[in-house]
Amino acid sequence: MPVPNYEPWDETRAAEVIAEAAKQDGACMPILHAVQRTFGYVPEEALPMIAQTLNLSRADVYGVFSFYHDFRHERAGRHVMKLCRAEACQAMGADALHKHARDKLQIGWGETTADGKVTLEPVYCLGLCACAPSGMIDGKVYGGLDNAKLGKLIDRARAA
C-alpha cells in the first residue's frame, strides 16, 4: 500500500507552493489544495500567508478553509480511509459494514487510531453506486466491499 509522502512544515516551501498556485483566477481553493497536497494538512501558519498573497483578510481565508470538508488543520493518520455513507451504499448494507469497521478500528467517524495509522472518514458518494458498498483508501477506490474484504484492507493499512 503506497503511503502518501508529505513534507514537514516549512515556511519557505509554503511560500513557493502558494505563489505557484496563486497564478490562477480565483486562486484561494487551488492554493488550499496545493498546501494540503504538500504538507498533508493546511497548517494555521499558512492562513495569514495565503491572506497576504490574495490581499484578503485572514478571516476570509479561514472562512473558505472551514467551509469545505476536505481541508484539515491537523495531519491525518498515515492512511485515510473514506467509506461511503450515501443511499446506494446503504441499500447494499453499508451501515453494518461501517459498524464492523469502527469496531475493528475502535474509532468513530473523523477519528484516528491511537497508533496514528488510520483516519476514518465518511464520504457522500464516490460515484461507485453500481459497485456498492464502496470506499477509498489513500486515493485508491474499492467497490463491492464486505466485512472480509474491508477487514483485510484495514489489516494491511495498520501493518504499513
Binding site: G26, G63, V64, F67, H69, D70, V123, Y124
Partner: peptide, 25 residues
C-alpha cells in the same frame, strides 16, 4: 477546478462562488 467535499457546490451559484475562491454559498 477541484471541489473540496461540499455537496452544495453542485448548486450552480455556489459553484460559481467556489470557483471564484470563496465559501460555496
Amino acid at each position: 477546478r477541484e471541489g473540496a467535499g461540499a455537496y452544495v457546490c453542485g448548486e450552480e451559484t455556489s459553484m460559481l462562488d467556489s470557483i471564484e475562491g470563496k465559501r460555496g454559498q
